[in-house]
Design a protein around this nucleic acid. Structure first.
Length: 512
RNA sequence: GCCCGCAUCGUCUAGCGGUCAGGACAUCACCCUUUCAAGGUGGUAACCGGGGUUCGACUCCCCGUGCGGGUACCA
């Protein structure tokens, strides 16, 4: 049908236009690229790497497994939303997460380049081929006409789709428009019938092609749309499994039509459910943080984030719940992917982060704490790591917890004495000044003995001890909540501790 | 409007015709304890509704409802 025959304008074309003989663009019928499974992550560089995006990246990475290949391809075909610095940011965020790619824009590979704007000739070749076989056609319609059309269809309760006016143009008319320099796009001629595929996550899918629009493949600026570009690239890069969000389900028939018209065999599709916010809407900035870098800056470990994200739509089927990226990569399979959307619960992330923090070695934790404690001396880092490890869920809690280590506290009277009488508090402070000189090992027991001695009522002795301890804690740290006393004192030094105790004592004395 | 998808504790989930519906987070109580954590023990808490199929449905089918996604010369 690539010849002179024009279909009857009144009827939809069938599959008869399918190319009988035109050879595929590139003959890659036999797999020739490395990896017995090839998966890709293909972000559009428009901003920050989003939690939802890293999840599909992580899923693809894990699903590729040890014997597969994971590649990154940049889909920068939208010049309006393109952000030049975004690609580097994405790559850095992925690397931070611990994802490693075998092929990509920064490291190259057998299919280089891995940036779509540098692969334009491939898309144009494909488009020409489709034009030649009649699987696609040029469209000169203005945006205004398209908008009006859609509005009318919507008003009539009909699915909105292009009415194929330009498809009915005679070749001479098309040529005349072209000669005139008219701006045009290339549209896919959606074939009749239905489209089906067996989705790895959703199961068998079926769409009536009549409901589906003739998608623009090449925009008037000469750039391809996602619908053409990713099909061409996925084919050339021999992608075997496409893992992407469910928002792509409705356009999969278009992609299938392109594969078919090109004579290519499509990959397997796995459409993963969305990640939702607490209000059950697609996770977005409205819900707070969505960029991977924001989570990093809040003090979440990449291990915890990966663990968290993996369980949004996947589970091992056992009661295990702590998984390293490496374990995820060996354990993850398509058949255990969930088909219902999941809410991103930050409380759960906090819990997982605490678990992962506690799994770190002290030197490792100290190292990771550095950016959060710019004022800390290097030798202080490990002791700090040791004392906070069990009590934080996020690294960024540390500065608050250790504020006393970097500045002298100035507690109020109320904070200082708590429930105690000023005189009792003062006596206990006085006693503790000397006790601080002793070894840390028995500091607590000597303090306890001193507190017990000052108890007036044997019945509430434990409470009294607690109250006394708090006086010392507040005097030294200015906080009602702090790391244990011996460690806190060690951190600031005995001399500083004694002077803080004296200052507190003076404060109480002044009021009395 | 039209098309498509999803549906087990508040949240993440296990379940794949017969279970006291399991685990984890969160929550509550208690224990441990110099505060906070961490840890331990125990508790509260779920199969969206209605029809079928079946000796028997959380599991299978249909309808409804709810929620979500798509409906661009964005991805």
């Amino acid at each position: 049908m690539g010849g002179g025959h024009r279909p009857d304008p009144g009827q939809l074309p069938g599959h008869g236009y399918l190319p009988g003989r035109p050879a595929p663009l590139t003959d890659l019928s036999a797999r020739s690229l490395p990896g017995n499974r090839r998966l890709r992550f293909a972000p559009s560089p428009t901003g920050q790497l989003h939690i939802g995006s890293v999840r599909t990246a992580l899923l693809s990475y894990c699903l590729a497994g040890h014997d597969g290949r994971f590649l990154v391809r940049i889909e920068d075909t939208d010049r309006e939303r393109f952000v030049p610095t975004a690609t580097t940011g994405y790559l850095e965020a992925m690397a931070w997460m611990g994802l490693r790619w075998d092929e990509g824009p920064d490291i190259g590979g057998p299919c280089a380049p891995y940036v779509e704007s540098e692969r334009l000739e491939h898309y144009h070749q494909a488009a020409d081929h489709l034009l030649g076989t009649g699987a696609a056609y040029r469209c000169f319609c203005s945006r205004e006409r398209l908008d009006d059309l859609r509005a009318a269809q919507k008003a009539a309760g009909q699915p909105t789709r292009y009415d194929r006016r330009c498809w009915r143009l005679q070749p001479t008319e098309v040529q005349a428009e072209l000669d005139r320099g008219a701006s045009s796009v290339i549209r896919l001629l959606m074939p009749e019938g239905e489209s089906r595929w067996d989705d790895l996550v959703l199961g068998p899918q079926e769409f009536q092609n009549a409901e589906i629009d003739d998608q623009v493949l090449i925009k008037s600026d000469g750039f391809p749309t996602y619908h053409l570009a990713h099909v061409v690239d996925d084919h050339l890069m021999e992608i075997t499994h496409v893992v992407r969000g469910v928002e792509w389900v409705p356009s999969t028939p278009k992609h299938l039509a392109v594969y078919r018209a090109m004579g290519w065999v499509p990959p397997e599709f796995a459409h993963v459910p969305l990640v939702l916010g607490s209000d059950h809407k697609k996770l977005s900035k409205r819900h707070g943080s969505v960029a991977v870098t924001e989570y990093r800056d809040m003090g979440y470990l990449p291990e915890a984030l990966a663990n968290m994200i993996a369980f949004l739509g996947w589970s091992p089927g056992t009661e295990e719940e702590i998984f390293s990226l490496e374990e995820l990569r060996t354990r993850m399979t398509f058949d255990r992917l969930q088909s219902s959307p999941a809410v991103f619960d930050q409380q759960r992330l906090d819990h997982l982060n605490g678990v992962w923090i506690r799994r770190l070695s002290i030197p490792d934790l100290a190292q990771r704490l550095r950016p959060f404690l710019p004022q800390a001396q290097k030798p202080q880092l490990e002791p700090i790591a040791a004392m906070v490890q069990e009590r934080i869920h996020r690294l960024d809690e540390v500065p608050g917890l250790l504020r006393f280590a970097f500045a002298d506290p100035d507690p109020t009277m109320e904070e200082l004495i708590g429930r105690l009488e000023p005189a009792t508090a003062a006596d206990f402070l006085r006693a503790s000044i000397d006790l601080v000189d002793g070894s840390s090992d028995d500091l607590m027991s000597s303090l306890r003995r001193a507190a017990e001695a000052s108890a007036s009522d044997q019945g509430s002795i434990n409470r009294h001890v607690r109250d006394c301890m708090q006086v010392v804690r507040v005097a030294i740290t200015g906080q009602r909540v702090s790391p244990p006393l011996p460690e806190s004192i060690a951190l600031i030094g005995k001399e500083a501790a004694r002077s803080r105790l004296r200052r507190a004592l003076a404060k109480i004395a002044m009021v009395r």
